[in-house]
Amino acid sequence: MTDILSQSEIDALLAALTSGEVNPNELKEEEKTKKVRTYDFRRPNKFSKEQMNSMQVIYENYARTLATFLSAQLRNIVQMSVLSVEQLTYDEFIRSLPDPSIIVIFNMAPLEGNGIFEIQAPLAFGMIDRLFGGSGGVPNKTRALTEIERAIIERVSQRMLDLLSEAWENITKLNPKVEFIESNPQFAQIVSPMEMVILISLETKIGEIEGMINFCLPYIVLEPVIDKLSLHFWFARTSSEQNPAHRLSLQKRIETARIPLHVLLGTTTITVRELLDLQVGDVVPLDKKVEQDLDVLIGNSQKFYAKPGILNKRLAIQITGFQMKGGDLA
């Protein structure tokens, strides 16, 4: 991050330029000089900035989908957003986890290798309590999961991974499956300690409980699709790919959707006294004449004109015209 000068530092710099202590030409020459950038060979940056930005886009979409799913499952307000996307060694990630933790190890078929996502304890126990009908409380002291709790978390985790495959759809087809849940970080060795990984942290709030869900994906696992992790590929694929089967499915859903249709015989205005005095058999004059077409409403919008009639001993209408401009009714 670029340092920001304080007002006193700005004043001192201006004074030095005015007095001649600092030569502007020397500053320009120094700016032109090629600067040396430190490089740690033990932590090579394998993910480019563009690839990390693509991961951010993927997991922002995933966070929105996952928040909707968890809100429905837990019957509580769930807020989720991407807090950070960074690359580090696998050893650094493992050392950052407490013991016990809730570490879900999953395969990333058809990619070879495993990934990890860690659910911080307050979130996991809050979810379990809500699924058991509680208010979402968490234990005072962090502990390992019981067998029943482990089964619940495994089921929820698999559904979360199903949604993850949808988020990756524009990059590659994934079929992630939960392999096992580990509580001791030292036993969760999926790659060598010095292997570079990308860490995506999702800031999550379930009701009043706040925590993180961290996804750890090794570079060696993502290497076959690493070239596709570019925003150009992402948006080009999204805009150009037309799936005929998907379009046909949407068309069928729209065609079979039920919509309300109403025929408006007419309107009038009466006083409250006249309304209270209405009796069976009274005639209420409307603003429509007998020869005028009736308004046909789809939802609250007028779309057609029609004539009333009878068909097979049932009231019916015959469409006589279309409302070209349309318009919603209050």
Rank of each mutant, 00 (worst) to 15 (best):
263 V>E: 11
220 I>A: 14
277 D>W: 02
258 R>V: 15
252 K>G: 04
138 V>A: 08
218 P>M: 08
295 D>C: 02
148 I>D: 10
3 D>V: 15
248 L>E: 14
127 M>V: 02
33 T>D: 06
205 K>V: 11
109 A>Q: 11
150 R>K: 14
283 V>R: 09
261 L>W: 05
133 G>C: 03
33 T>K: 15
215 F>R: 05
77 I>L: 12
157 S>K: 06
231 L>E: 09
195 E>G: 08
119 I>N: 01
17 L>Y: 06
52 M>H: 03
198 I>Q: 07
63 A>S: 15
61 N>T: 10
290 V>S: 14
43 R>T: 10
41 F>T: 04
305 Y>H: 08
250 L>K: 13
245 A>W: 00
46 K>W: 01
77 I>T: 13
66 L>M: 12
40 D>I: 11
154 E>F: 00
163 L>A: 08
74 L>A: 05
38 T>H: 11
118 E>A: 01
328 D>L: 14
301 S>H: 05
47 F>M: 09
240 S>H: 09
31 E>C: 00
194 M>K: 12
270 I>E: 03
141 K>V: 14
69 F>A: 05
229 L>N: 03
254 I>D: 03
224 P>I: 14
162 D>P: 01
283 V>S: 06
212 M>H: 09
109 A>S: 12
272 V>L: 10
245 A>T: 13
29 E>N: 10
117 F>Q: 05
215 F>E: 06
198 I>C: 09
311 L>I: 11
215 F>Q: 09
101 S>P: 07
133 G>E: 07
158 Q>N: 11
6 S>I: 08
238 T>K: 15
228 K>R: 15
212 M>T: 06
324 M>W: 00
99 D>F: 07
282 D>S: 07
94 I>S: 04
50 E>Q: 10
48 S>Q: 03
123 L>P: 04
2 T>L: 12
120 Q>S: 13
144 A>Y: 00
65 T>M: 15
265 L>S: 10
8 S>W: 00
317 I>K: 02
319 I>F: 07
304 F>L: 13
98 P>C: 06
278 L>D: 08
52 M>D: 00
301 S>M: 10
126 G>R: 02
